[in-house]
Design a protein around this nucleic acid. Structure first.
Lengths: 147, 147
DNA sequence: TAAACTAATTGTAAAGATTATAATATAATA
DNA sequence: TATTATATTATAATCTTTACAATTAGTTTA
């Protein structure tokens, strides 16, 4: 997709003295082209073909570097492994409890909640996270068919 | 605290044919008296004195049973282990990024977000989760002293 | 109250995700 | 192209949670 965004990200890394290796480039590119919020293992498997010798540790290392440089976000839900999202714009997620699919959706940032939390608890608030859970269209339809 | 709530919980378990063993009673009681949202391991360590032979598997089993019966909630944040909350009323959490402390706070349920998510994504929404992150009072003060 | 039945506990092993480590390879730079 | 620091690889270790089989113990019923 947006080749420009990818180039910007690479410049950002370079200016932080992060080396652009083929593996790192591939992880970054894969995430930028994915809307599926993949896990580390899914990224690893997706790049196996191109990099047969790549270690899974490399994927984890690079995800950490990308996260530390503000290029991807780590999403931790109830399930066992983290998911990664290169969409750093303000948005929330709706998660299907049936099949695990994660869908983006936009809503005005909940600034009121943050400021009330500050007042009530005395915290300095930095950010919040919100996820909505339910059943996606596909899973609804599948159930309907089986009846 | 509320001895009555504990008795109600026990009745609820009995009516679901869940046996009340000393270990199970202790896990339940500990959670009902705790406001600290403990991990499974913290519960295990807290009960070690009373039950020197208790297995950590017993703690996990009981937490699962309590969760399945709607008596505790499992909280999964970015850190490695789940936390458990016996406060089943509608409330949100503010989490200190410094020390990990979790503080309850109340806010009207975000029904609007849920209904917008339904419209936009076509999901059947069942619930949502929201956490606010920041720095707690104590950690702020500690930092101020060190300057 | 005792026997019988079923569920719970225990101890240990296994699974799965992630991190640590040390040796080797390689990107960036002068 | 030589140098140097960083990244990668392969593997082991760690940590949380679950699985399993044997034993123990609630609960029910005769």
């Amino acid at each position: 997709m947006s080749e420009q965004k990818l180039q910007q990200a690479i410049e950002r890394l370079k200016s932080s003295n992060v080396r652009i290796t083929p593996q790192r480039h591939a992880v970054l590119e894969f995430l930028f082209n994915s809307e599926a919020h993949p896990t580390a293992d899914e990224i690893y498997k997706a790049l196996e073909g191109k990099f047969p010798n790549m270690s899974v540790a490399t994927v984890y290392n690079n995800l950490r570097v990308l996260r530390e440089n503000g290029l991807v976000r780590e999403l931790t839900y109830g399930d066992s492994s983290s998911r990664f999202d290169s969409n750093m714009s303000d948005h929330y997620h709706v998660i299907c409890e049936e099949c695990g699919k994660i869908t983006d959706f936009h809503y005005p940032p909940l600034d009121e909640v943050e400021s009330l939390a500050e007042q009530v608890t005395g915290f300095d608030v930095s950010h919040h996270r919100l996820e909505v859970y339910g059943q996606c269209k596909d899973c609804k339809e599948k159930k309907a068919v089986n009846h």
